[in-house]
């Protein structure tokens, strides 16, 4: 389904292996959300419908962004996929298997890195291996993944010595070392400055093309969504649902300022009812 969209796209120069690499021939990492409704009950008896009838299918190795105003249920959808919440109605599946609880096959990275402060970076990254009792067999993986995120020299350092960007890369490595089929990212770059953020975006793309993991990322940044994803899911609140899904058929590496890029960007902004505000030339101060 994804590759079809890519082939039909005018600007497509992406070989199919960009998305479906040799590793993912086993077609793993497919997420299906079917008519998912999530209702939160508050202690005072009131109820909030965070998601209503949301259906979404994410293909193996696909990169999907979730975008939308605050409170439209993006985090809730991600937490449902992670297994941290149970759907009130509907079902979520990974490769056909019902998602019932958190599992190492579905990694999650929050906006705050939440590194365990009592473990040094090496042991933070090794956490998943130890938790699954496979550390002894895979010790050398820790160094590999630290290297993957550019923290090879920081294994013995404690988290409070790291900058925000470094901490976020460490938490990325910690999630990736479990070799999850799906990586869920909840505004992972939201707290970073513009330069670190753009570097991290490239880093995520590099890791993605190396590891071929399905990724779902929540973001508030339309540029980020257009730059990174194969598809962008635009959500609207009250109750949270999927408004549209936009294909982003550009080859990677992408330039951030081609006319096509800007056209898609303003299209998404339009859907979010922000277009008017952004119609001035983007480089005007």
């Amino acid at each position: 389904m994804v590759s079809e969209a890519l082939i039909s796209a005018p600007l497509n120069q992406v070989p199919p292996s960009e998305i479906l690499g040799p590793d993912s021939e086993r077609a793993s990492g497919v997420i299906e959300a079917e008519r998912v409704t999530k209702i939160f009950s508050h202690p005072d008896g009131s109820e909030v419908t965070a998601l209503k009838n949301v259906s979404l299918k994410v293909g193996a190795g696909e990169f999907v962004s979730l975008i939308g105003p605050s409170g439209c249920g993006k985090s809730t959808l991600l937490r449902l996929v992670a297994g941290l919440e149970r759907a009130t109605e509907g079902s979520l599946r990974l490769d056909g298997k019902l998602i019932e609880r958190p599992d190492a096959e579905r990694g999650l990275v929050f906006q705050n890195p939440y590194l365990f402060p009592w473990l040094n970076i090496h042991n933070n990254v090794a956490f998943g291996l130890r938790a699954r009792s496979v550390y002894k067999l895979n010790k050398e993986l820790v160094a590999q993944y630290l290297d993957l995120v550019g923290l090879a020299k920081f294994g013995r350092v404690y988290p409070h010595h790291l900058s925000g960007g470094m901490a976020q890369r460490a938490s990325l490595a910690r999630a990736l070392i479990n070799q999850p089929r799906v990586l869920l990212l909840d505004e992972p770059l939201g707290a970073l400055d513009a330069f670190t953020r753009m570097n991290m975006q490239d880093e995520i793309l590099r890791i993605r093309s190396e590891k071929r993991i399905t990724m779902i990322m929540v973001t508030h940044d339309v540029d980020e969504a257009v730059y990174l994803s194969d598809r962008t899911v635009v959500m609207t609140p009250g109750p949270g649902r999927v408004e549209t899904i936009i294909d982003i058929p550009f080859a990677r590496p992408r330039a951030r300022n081609t006319p096509d890029f800007l056209r898609l960007r303003s299209k998404i902004l339009e859907i979010l009812h922000f277009a008017g505000h952004f119609e001035e030339p983007p480089y005007q101060i």
Partner: peptide, 13 residues
């Protein structure tokens, strides 16, 4: 913070 338990559970703990 509950987030630490959530993170650890998504890491397979």
């Amino acid at each position: 913070q509950n987030a630490y338990f959530e993170v650890s559970s998504t890491l397979g703990a």
